[in-house]
């Protein structure tokens, strides 16, 4: 039987359907539930994804209003029990504002922030583009354990507030956490724009929790889960796509292993 996954739709979410599609393709019995979900229904799921979008129109700060909802208390308790939780884009912002990532010492205290995009501290506004990333310390998280540190992956970003800011406590343990970082097409972690598109500390694009069962990522893995979603200019992945179109075969996209790893963890451990 497939593990059950809930994509939690907030008022203003806009990526819930493509997220469900990616999760369903790679092993989940996935459904969309609303932010008002009751406790009994919530507890029926093994894993949860907070999708991208603009919950509450990004009022006050992106993700902060949604982070106060009762469903985030449910999620905090689920995280404590070891259930899997993935926050993508606005979902990443919500997890940060709720203190669920990186959850140092098991506490839900706010210790990372997603600030406004900037280039040398000058505001750059909303960014919509494909970027390259690589994974560091992949084995420290359920979500990244199938990736290798040497791999370079294309992935789309769509955000105005995606600049990771860390507390000193998180800085101290950063090398032990699984992280996704912006890099060049050759894999160089260059801190300058446009390789680092938003001024993130340490080029961060995503970060796992200390326990490894929660992950917050600003780029959109669900939009690079199928090879057909990748642009033809995306190096090896683009060439694979063209080859697939020529031969009529379609392989998994660069971010399929994230969803496969989640499902495998729940079925095989």
């Amino acid at each position: 039987m497939s593990p059950k996954l809930a994509v939690i739709q907030f008022p203003g979410s806009n990526c819930e359907y493509e997220t469900r599609r990616a999760a369903a393709q790679y092993g989940f019995d996935a459904e969309i539930v609303r932010w008002t979900v009751d406790r009994e229904t919530f507890d029926r799921f093994d894993a949860y994804i907070l999708p991208g979008g603009f919950s509450y129109q990004d009022r006050v700060r992106a993700g902060v209003i949604a982070s106060k909802l009762p469903v985030l208390q449910f999620l905090a308790e689920a995280a404590e029990k070891g259930k899997l939780i993935l926050g993508i884009c606005n979902g990443c912002q919500i997890l940060a504002e709720a203190g669920l990532v990186p959850g140092l010492g098991g506490k839900a205290a706010i210790s990372i922030a997603l600030a406004h995009n900037a280039r040398q501290n000058r505001p750059v506004g909303f960014i919509c583009d494909w970027v390259n990333v690589k994974v560091q310390t992949p084995k420290a998280s359920v979500f990244t354990r199938y990736f290798s540190e040497n791999d370079i992956f294309p992935i789309p970003i769509n955000h105005g507030e995606g600049r990771f800011v860390l507390s000193p406590e998180v800085e101290a343990v950063l090398p032990t956490l699984s992280t996704v970082v912006y890099c060049s097409a050759e894999g160089q972690i260059e801190t300058e724009f446009p390789i680092n598109p938003n001024g993130s500390q340490h080029n961060l694009a995503g970060m796992g929790s200390q326990k490894g069962n929660v992950f917050a990522i600003m780029p959109h893995p669900e939009r690079a889960a199928f090879l057909k979603q990748v642009p033809e200019s995306a190096g090896k992945w683009g060439r694979d796509k063209i080859e697939g179109l020529r031969t009529g075969s379609q392989k998994d996209g660069p971010w399929a292993p994230l969803f496969v790893s989640m499902a495998d963890f729940l079925t095989k451990g």
């Binding site: 902060v64 209003i65 203190g99 205290a109 706010i110 990372i112 922030a113 600030a115 800011v165």
Partner: peptide
């Protein structure tokens, strides 16, 4: 000042 889910909303002291 945002500190956790229950406390603070108007500013994020990290930045």
């Amino acid at each position: 000042a945002s500190a956790d889910r229950a406390h603070g909303i108007l500013i994020n002291p990290l930045y």
